[in-house]
Computed example of a mutant assay.
Amino acid sequence: MNGSTTVEDYVKTIYGHTEWQPESITPSVLAARMGLAASSVTEMVKKLAASGLVTHVPYGAITLTDQGRALALRMVRRHRLIETWLVESFGYGWDEVHDEAEVLEHALSDRMLDAISRQLGQPTRDPHGDPIPAADGTVRLPDAVLLSQASDGHRGAVVRISDRNPELLRWLDEHAVRLDAPIEVIERRPFGGALAVLVDGHPLDLGSDAAAAIWLAA
């Protein structure tokens, strides 16, 4: 992995952490997300700060600067367009595209990415519901609520499913939990039990990991 690729991966990960929730990322969380030693991440964050890509409070929050956010959005656009391309044009499953996109996002030219976007009809979201930033860096998140935090009786279409766990994606797909599927929250089972929902009218119990990976239209 070369230096520019490493920088791109770092800023993309930092951006992704706060895209759907407000908690800032810390070096320890960043290390866990990237599967790296804390000492390596600390040194890299210092380099990112020296390059003007992040601001950082020691042992505290890491925040992208305007320059860092612009680079992150460029990489996020690449990653999500490629994931969409792999699903739409090559028959990949939504649980199979992340690792492929991690490689290809650093290799394809801007011209190729623009051609892919045109071929796909300028998509605005990837196979998991994450918004694809426009070429100018603008990005629009849907008004959404995390299923695990939704109140009983809430009804809404699925607008996003986290792609962190491929096994969970496969399980959800088998139970018809996909983008745009209508879900109604029925109740939380007592004593920390599952979340009972209706998926397009069909009952399903979701564990905490699944409920924390699904966003519904607010």
Results as ranks from 00 to 15, higher is better:
117 S>I: 06
49 A>I: 12
67 Q>V: 09
43 E>Y: 08
12 K>I: 05
66 D>F: 09
51 S>E: 09
12 K>S: 13
76 V>N: 03
106 H>D: 04
34 M>L: 14
13 T>I: 02
33 R>E: 14
62 I>E: 04
102 E>M: 05
120 L>T: 02
42 T>M: 12
76 V>P: 09
91 G>E: 12
126 D>M: 03
15 Y>N: 08
120 L>H: 00
88 E>K: 14
19 E>W: 04
58 P>D: 10
70 A>K: 05
110 D>K: 06
112 M>N: 09
51 S>C: 15
60 G>W: 08
59 Y>A: 13
44 M>S: 03
95 D>C: 01
129 G>N: 05
89 S>W: 15
114 D>H: 08
121 G>E: 01
90 F>H: 15
41 V>G: 02
33 R>I: 05
120 L>N: 01
36 L>N: 13
53 L>W: 10
61 A>G: 10
86 L>P: 01
93 G>N: 08
43 E>W: 11
62 I>C: 06
91 G>D: 12
75 M>V: 11
47 K>M: 06
54 V>T: 03
112 M>R: 10
68 G>Q: 07
107 A>S: 13
83 E>V: 02
78 R>I: 14
102 E>D: 11
91 G>K: 03
108 L>Y: 05
55 T>C: 13
116 I>M: 09
62 I>V: 12
107 A>G: 07
88 E>H: 02
